[in-house]
Design a binder for these strands. Structure first.
Lengths: 214, 214
DNA sequence: GGGACTTCGTGAGAGGATTCACAAACAGAT
DNA sequence: ATCTGTTTGTGAATCCTCTCACGAAGTCCC
């Protein structure tokens, strides 16, 4: 019984970071942690962390702190990570392969069970345990593995087409890494991570720093 | 006369997206674009786009729209992309190699001129035009290529160490892809992109959708 | 040159997110 | 049982962001 009251978007975005810290703490054998410590390790300030956690429920004990295992369990539940969610990667080039191998995906409950690519040399083969299928097989692959989330790492020319096919088969959650603005129906959630956008933001601040000090 | 008046952080984060759209429009031969069109193509609404651009200056002409080339030039300037900023990639595994190959980096003025890795089999060799150096060579590499930005794609165990070395040589802008919370001095800008965090956020919304409709 | 039409730039208001300070609650010692 | 320490949970205030409506400014046609 968690996640009732609306959890703010900004809080949701930070929960994975807290979860990561808690997992690390548990691995080192820590059983209790204060908001001060947990915040420090997660890179936020303590009041923000407490407010964030207060949106999930009251899981701490005053004078003591938070029980690492219990809080971990609760955040896990709030994020819906109780059960694993298989993922398909579309576009099995350098980036796609790196993502499929990325241990963080499987470790956090998002195993990459299949890949899609147009290259005949890859289709039908298995790389690092991930079988590659042709785009026309998307419906069977999705149905067979009960896939609900797709990752796009195709070249930009192919991204919109891949998205359209995925949406047509019922996929409602898409994570896009290709540097292009894709369009999806209103009931599909599309998150885009443009790797070079982040560099551009860094560049902006670098330049600003130079201007500011002149 | 651009980038003086403070540009809001939220606006800065969207400028790269606008720039991308403008480049695409220019490539197709479009010379003028309205805020409505540009917003649609960039995935935001028109008033937001206009407000964003108004922070840079008044570059549109009423009744007509924006001159594609001119606006492109101005956003480019505001983001500090007038000159290229070479980048070093630390950790030349699957992800690191994919990033170094990522055409988006070079295309947008962030050429990857060098990589750092601890694997003796890679050090001294060049992959896809990128020479691999040992961690001890960081200072020379940074100085030689005038590098101001570093990308971290090492395994989590090595990330903090790599960051410390980079900071010691004067790097003040770091883009981290390893799923761990790193600590840097206050005058260093660290942006972290955890690929699986994005999946976790998608997972949260998926679960919420199920709860909401029950 | 004037009028109709289009589109930008922006001020005011609403909605979120962050900060901060402090009361409430618990543990542990005596 | 009481008192002292500590640490949480949260309302109030501030700041940032987004939305929306409309005046201002330009184009185009007659």
């Amino acid at each position: 019984m968690n996640s009732y009251g609306h959890i703010p978007e900004a809080t949701v975005a930070r929960l994975p970071s807290y979860l990561r810290t808690l997992v690390d703490l548990a691995a080192v054998g820590v059983s209790t942690v204060s908001s001060e410590e947990l915040a420090e390790l997660s890179g936020v300030n303590a009041p923000k962390l407490r407010k964030d956690l207060s949106h999930l429920g009251t899981y701490g004990t005053r004078g003591v702190g938070y029980d690492v295992d219990y809080l971990r369990f609760e955040i896990n539940g709030a994020l819906g990570l109780a059960n694993t969610r298989p993922v398909v990667v579309c576009g099995f080039g350098n980036l796609g392969r790196a993502l499929a191998n990325h241990t963080g995906f499987t470790e956090r409950g998002f195993p990459v069970l299949a890949a899609i690519d147009t290259d005949p040399a890859k289709i039908g083969h298995t790389f690092d345990g991930v079988p590659v299928h042709s785009p026309s097989e998307i419906p069977e692959v999705v149905k067979h593995h009960l896939i609900a989330i797709a990752v796009i790492s195709t070249p930009v020319e192919a991204s919109q087409g891949a998205v359209d096919r995925l949406v047509a088969t019922g996929i409602r959650s898409i994570l896009n890494f290709s540097p292009i603005n894709l369009t999806v129906p209103a009931d599909v959630e599309l998150r885009s991570v443009d790797l070079s956008t982040q560099l551009q933001i860094l560049g902006f601040h670098l330049q600003k720093a130079v201007i500011d000090e002149s």
